[in-house]
Design a binder for these strands. Structure first.
Length: 113
DNA sequence: AGTCTGACTCTGT
DNA sequence: CACAGAGCCAGAC
């Protein structure tokens, strides 16, 4: 039996598993957790991710399916997300990740459960 | 308790 | 290729 709280918790757990220098999408996480159409909830979870209660969550490694930094405006500063990504060697141009398909990390495949 | 909104995504026109 | 509508569901008001 899963409570919505667990969904959030699972989201954070998966996000924390994203390797440095890799990224994934909201939809991929939602799908991995069994709710392919609940990608919005993943984003919602990210919205609360900064809470000290959840510890560190690399939300900057989660983008939309086009590799765009759609959530950058929810960071302390709009440019922080880009900075964090480039710090990990990810090229970001115009809020869009370069070679997105190459660094894309799909929990469905990588975790292979 | 009803309505609105959103860090998404898919499908149709 | 762009834009619109729908599905999704928890949280804010």
């Amino acid at each position: 039996m899963q409570k919505h709280e667990d969904f959030f918790k699972n989201v954070y757990a998966v996000v924390r598993l994203i390797p440095k220098g890799r990224v994934t999408s909201y939809g991929a996480i939602a799908k991995y957790l069994g709710s392919a159409r609940s990608s919005r909830m993943v984003g919602w979870a990210m919205n609360a991710a900064h809470s000290p209660k959840n510890g560190f969550v690399p939300a900057h490694r989660v983008v939309n399916r086009n590799g765009e930094l759609t959530g950058k405006n929810h960071f302390p500063t709009p440019f922080l997300m880009k900075e964090l990504l480039e710090k990990e060697g990810i090229k970001v141009v115009k809020d869009k990740i370069k070679k997105f398909e190459e660094i894309y990390w799909d929990p469905m495949k990588e975790l292979e459960l």
